[in-house]
Design a protein around this nucleic acid. Structure first.
Lengths: 231, 231
DNA sequence: GGCTGATTCATACGTTCGTATGAATTCCGT
DNA sequence: ACGGAATTCATACGAACGTATGAATCAGCC
C-alpha cells in the first residue's frame, strides 16, 4: 500500500475539493444514464465510457458507484428544493399572514420541477425524470437519502397547505399529497417524453403543450384534487 | 446437440403446457423479487434460489430471463384488465345508453387495482406495486409489452370518460389520464407500504385507511381532478 | 526547472451475471 | 413394469460487473 502518493482514494473521497473536469463529466454522464436505465441498469463502465474518463476515476473521485449515484441526485435536488422553499417564502411574505391561495402553493411545488431543466446544454429536461426514477428506485439507501433531502420543504409545504385548506384534516392531506406527487411525477415524465408513448387511439394522440400550458394543466388537476370534498 | 431428448428448450418454450410446479414457483419468486429490486436488480440466480429450483429451469420453462419477466407481468395484468373491462361493461349496460357517472368510471379503474391482491397467500398486495414498477421500468421492451396489454381497456375507458365529461376536449383528457394513473400508482404504492415511509412531521403521520376508505379517498381526488374547470 | 501533490491511466482480481449443455431423474400411459 | 417424454440436475463458459493498485502524467509553486 502506498503511503506517500496522493490521498487515499476511498477514505477521504468526500473531503476532496468539489470541482474537476472529470468529476463533473462523470456526474453528467451518470445522470443521463441513470435517467435512461435506472441505478441497477447503469454500470460503472458505461458511465466512464460516456464521460470519456478512466475506470479508476470513479473510485478516485467518489469512492464507490453508490456514492457517485447519491451525488448525482444531491447535485440536482438541493437547488430544486432551495428554489421551492424560496418561492414559498416569497408567497408567504406576499400574503402577509393570510393563508396563501391553494393554486399558488401548488405552483410553487410544480414549477421548479418543470423549469429546472436546461441547467446543462443537451440535457433535455431530464432532471425531474431523474428524481422520479430516484423516488421509485428499489434501492432503499437512495430512497432514504432523497427523503432526507426533501424533508425541510415537505414540512414547510405541509403547513402551508393546511392553512390553505383549513377544513381538511391533516391526515387527509397526507394522502392527497401522495396523489399529488404521483400525478406530478407521472405527468412530467409523460410530458418530457411524450412522443415515445403513442396513444392506442390515434385520434386522441395528445398534442404537447408548452411549458406554461403544461404547468397550467397540472396545477388545475392537482388543485381540484386537493380541494375535493371529503368523501 | 441432442436430437432425441425432450423438446429443444429455448425454441419451443412458448408452446409448452402452461402448468408445472417449478414453473409456477419461478413466476411467484420472480414476482416478489421484481417488486423489491426491479428488473435489472433481480438476477436469474436469485429467482431460482427463492423458488427452490435449479438454474436450468429458467432456460427450460421460459427460454430467457426476459421472457420470464414478461410472463410475470402478463400473468397478473391479463385478469386485471379483464376485470376492469367487465366492470365497464356492467356500468354501461346499467346506464342504458346514458353516460356512466364519472365516479363510477374512476372506481372501475381503481378498484380492480386495489382489490387484485390476495391471489396468492403471502403476497400482500404486491400486484399493483409490480405493475407500477413495470410501467416505470427503464426496459423499453417491457414498457411496450405493458402498453400493448392495456391497450384494449385504455380505448374503452377513454371513450367512456369522454362521454362522462362531454365538455372536456379529448386532448385534455389524455393529460388528465396521465395525472390519474400517476396518482393511482404512487398512492397505491404508499398505501401498500405506508409504514415504510415515516413522515417528517410525526403529528401528520398518516393513519392507514382500510381498503374501502382508501378507494374512497383515491376516487374523490381523481374525480375532482378529472372534472376540474379548464384553465 | 524540478519537487510535490493531484489526477489520470492501463491493467488486474475475484465475483456474479445470463445462458447453454448433457446426463440424471421423474412422470405417466400402456 | 417398462419405455419414451418431460423435467430437473450439476456444471461450464464467456462476458460484464465493482473495485483496487501502482505507475504515468499533469499542475502549480518554491
Amino acid at each position: 500500500m502506498s503511503l506517500t502518493l496522493g490521498q487515499p482514494p476511498a477514505s477521504t473521497a468526500s473531503e476532496r475539493p468539489r470541482s474537476s473536469h472529470t468529476r463533473e463529466a462523470l456526474l453528467d454522464a451518470a445522470e443521463t444514464l441513470l435517467v435512461e436505465h435506472g441505478v441497477a441498469g447503469t454500470s460503472t463502465r458505461a458511465i466512464i465510457k460516456a464521460a470519456g474518463a478512466n475506470l479508476g476515476a470513479v473510485n478516485y473521485h467518489f469512492g464507490t458507484k453508490e456514492d457517485l449515484v447519491l451525488e448525482v441526485f444531491a447535485r440536482r435536488l438541493r437547488p430544486l428544493n432551495r428554489d421551492r422553499i424560496a418561492r414559498l417564502d416569497a408567497l408567504e411574505a406576499e400574503a402577509q399572514g393570510q393563508p396563501v391561495p391553494l393554486e399558488k402553493l401548488v405552483e410553487a411545488i410544480v414549477r421548479p420541477s418543470v423549469e429546472a431543466r436546461e441547467t446543462r446544454p443537451g440535457t433535455h429536461m431530464a432532471l425531474f425524470r431523474l428524481i422520479c426514477r430516484g423516488f421509485q428506485d428499489p434501492n432503499p439507501q437512495l430512497k432514504a437519502f432523497l427523503n432526507r433531502e426533501c424533508a425541510e420543504f415537505a414540512t414547510r409545504i405541509d403547513a402551508a397547505l393546511l392553512r390553505a385548506l383549513p377544513w381538511l384534516p391533516p391526515q387527509e392531506l397526507v394522502w392527497r399529497e401522495r396523489f399529488l406527487f404521483g400525478a406530478l411525477n407521472h405527468g412530467l415524465d409523460s410530458w418530457v417524453f411524450y412522443d415515445n408513448l403513442p396513444h392506442p387511439n390515434p385520434e386522441m394522440q395528445p398534442m404537447r403543450p408548452d411549458r406554461e400550458g403544461f404547468i397550467r394543466r397540472l396545477v388545475a388537476f392537482i388543485a381540484a384534487g386537493l380541494s375535493a370534498p371529503l368523501p
